[in-house]
Amino acid sequence: METIKARLTREKIHRFIFGTREKQGFGKQLIVYGLLICIGFVYLYPMLYMISTSFMSRDDLLDTSVKWLPNHLYVQNYIDAARSMNFVPSFLKGILIAALPTLCNVLICMMVGYGFARYDFKGKKIMMGILLFSYILPSQVTMIPTYVLYNNLGILGTILTFVLPALFGNGLNAPIFILIFYQFFRQIPKVLTEAAAIDGAGHFKTFFRIAVPSAIPAIVTVVLFSFVWYWNESYLTELYVQGLSTKSIWTNLVVQLKNFDSSFETRASVGDTATSLNESVRMAATTISILPLLIMYLILQKQFVESIDRAGITGE
């Protein structure tokens, strides 16, 4: 009697911890949640550090007893950083720099993806190969002649340097977007386009009336990612759109952040700022440059998280 009872409880404990086939055990769940929370914290750590530091005044920074929570919210850091980064113009131009090429990217990549998916012309395989190759190839190889080309065209230091390649299907990460649309358009049944053709729609009418409206999920994905990637691009923005000349008016927040130290120093030397350059100001600048996308992400989070699902990238 006693032993049976003991075994029963042991079994119960085992079931409680490891679970049965139908129900997850408590122990397993504990491990999963523990891991998720730990890794989640590690993910958030830099952000938390950044935000908490950005509100610290100089006294808080020097005070070793202040670790996470500043004594009071010191907003002056933000004012100084924003002034040094030229926040409003940089922000607006950043939106333009990201939005215009994105628009071209979406339109052209959609067309090209449709062409690859719907038609079966000669040399298609080679072209797809070149498409992949152009993705793998680092942009540094083509950067120098392209720079010379833009210089000869006289568009260096203008937004056209981003719009032009996007218009010709070679914008930032365009191969990925073309492949997304390719995958998507391959999934729409051919009967649909054939029916449209029988009803007398031409090739382009079929494309605009049938293919484009059905591709809304893919369009959302491409718009979001293209915008974010253009927004975060600093290397090429500095090289082409800013043209590495100080005279150009084009700049975005990320490039401003990159050159933050020097621009802040020059401002500080004129006596334009209330604080000297320190960690808090730099973290405040970082927060500012992240903030617009962060807000966008919080609003559109559902679209972001589900976008790749619905665009069916993975529908091989």
Partner: peptide, 30 residues
């Protein structure tokens, strides 16, 4: 019918020549 595909892909073909293949050759020359 399939030849229409070239029309759709045309922008990309021009782009890849202009911004990838020709610069690639040029930098090889440089």
């Amino acid at each position: 019918e399939d030849r229409m595909g070239y029309l759709f892909v045309l922008p990309w073909i021009i782009g890849v020549l202009l911004f990838v293949l020709i610069p690639l050759g040029q930098s090889f020359y440089y």
